[in-house]
Design a protein around this nucleic acid. Structure first.
Length: 401
DNA sequence: TCTGGGGTCCTAGGACCC
DNA sequence: TCTGGGGTCCTAGGACCC
């Protein structure tokens, strides 16, 4: 049976949601109508554009550029801080509204999802009319606009929702691919970023259509297996399913850009410990155990290095994760000025699957687990500031936004 | 006052095993 | 002794997404 897939995407999500928050709190002015962006804290060196208003976009402001650069393009721009708690709330409201119409919803990020319309088509009728109806319902009840893309697969639905904005509905059925998608520049194709589009342009492939009509075998030497998937995508072919079940994360990470570059090894070690503690807490919250611990450093030249280590036994114990993170930091740190420190836990599983080795003391591990549980509860109750464990006295990181 | 943070997936090389 | 070839695991780094 021919599928019908919709991609629903919030227009300028963070900016729209902050606009609503401000209006709710008595503001008379809708920041969506002026030159405005949601931006990180420049003093803390997080000064990038997270979202922009349509007028700001018209001035050439783009997501992820520095506020410094955005200001050069648009001197009168107003910058508002992000409010992630509120964004989570708005996001949840949106997905709840959509869930009333179909259970087949795949949430891809805080502000977008796929809806498999195939099974409910007989119930609600013409896809375009349905899209119009929910688009209006979202605006009426939640006060923000969405774009909706309608197609026979996820890729085309996603491409369609991006065509023109805001508050638009576009279709990209198979028969429309050559007319609507092929003229677009190659970098617009989902999965083709800066590096890949530069390489393709070097090869004389500048539009999606020209990629669609290239033999994947010819591209293989340059792109390996990616060559096949990108030519399929350029032809509007995508067999992937809408997956509605929430999946367990594959890894958990926490990183922070330091408010100044740091060279002092002891100081850096303390930060590694703090971040290791944070990911450990997040891991236990997910009721998971990690097999791999990794540390990432970014230096003042923006060069990133990472070291990781696979453990014999998966763990969720703060002290063990800390120790490995410190060990990795010791082995990789060469005295550079460091801008960012991150710790990542990978290969997660539900169970400890712990085998007692001759040299390990299982009682001590039990004690560690109990201590972690107690500390987690205390932190949950009194906030993360309360408990310091001697080593860590760095300022808090982004989770407290 | 120049460049976030959290993810996923892929590739390549070395180790190791048969 | 101018010397295999898979297969799998582990690690480092890169590309891309929102």
């Amino acid at each position: 049976m021919e599928r019908v897939i919709m991609h629903i995407d919030v227009n300028n999500a963070f900016l729209s949601w902050t606009a609503i928050d401000l209006l709710n709190h008595g503001s008379k002015y809708d920041i969506r109508e002026g030159y405005a962006v949601i931006g990180g804290d420049e003093q803390a060196r997080r000064g990038i554009v997270l979202a922009k208003s349509m007028p700001a976009k018209k001035m050439g402001v783009v997501t992820a550029e520095t506020l410094y650069s955005a200001r050069k393009k648009c001197p009168s721009i107003r910058v508002y801080p992000p409010n992630y708690k509120w964004y989570q709330h708005m996001s949840k409201s949106l997905f709840q509204l959509l869930s009333a119409y179909s259970p087949d919803i795949e949430v891809v990020s805080i502000d977008e999802c796929y809806l498999d319309y195939t099974k409910v088509k007989n119930l609600y009728g013409d896809p375009y009319e349905f899209a119009k109806k929910i688009q209006k319902e979202i605006l009426d009840t939640l006060k923000f606009t969405v774009n909706i893309g309608i197609a026979e697969n996820k890729l085309c639905a996603k491409m369609a929702s991006d065509f023109t904005k805001p508050y638009k509905i576009h279709t990209l059925y198979s028969k429309e691919v050559s007319e609507k998608m092929w003229p677009l520049p190659i970098g617009k194709l989902f999965g083709i970023g800066k590096k890949t589009s530069a390489k393709l342009i070097d090869l004389g492939i500048t539009t999606i259509g020209s990629l669609a009509n290239t033999d994947a075998e010819k591209l293989y030497p340059y792109f390996k297996n990616q060559a096949y998937s990108m030519v399929l995508h350029a032809n509007g072919i995508d067999e992937s399913e809408v997956v509605s079940e929430a999946s367990m994360p594959k890894g958990i990470s926490n990183s922070t850009t330091l408010s100044r570059d740091i060279r002092n090894k002891e100081e850096l070690a303390k930060i590694v410990v703090t971040i290791a503690d944070n990911v450990s807490i997040a891991l236990r919250k997910e009721k998971q155990y990690a097999h791999v611990v990794g540390v990432m450093l970014k230096d003042n030249f923006f060069k990133t290095t990472s070291h990781q280590k696979k453990l014999k036994n998966a763990t969720n114990v703060t002290n063990e994760i800390r120790a490995v993170a410190l060990e990795l930091f010791e082995e990789m740190y060469g005295g550079q000025a460091i801008r960012l420190v991150g710790v990542r836990l990978d290969q997660l599983e539900n169970k400890a699957n712990y085998q007692i080795s001759l040299f390990e003391n299982i009682d001590q591990r039990d004690d560690s687990t109990k201590l972690d549980q107690t500390l987690d509860q205390l932190k949950e109750k009194y906030g993360h500031e309360i408990i310091k464990n001697g080593l860590s006295n760095t300022r808090k990181i982004h989770r407290k936004y």
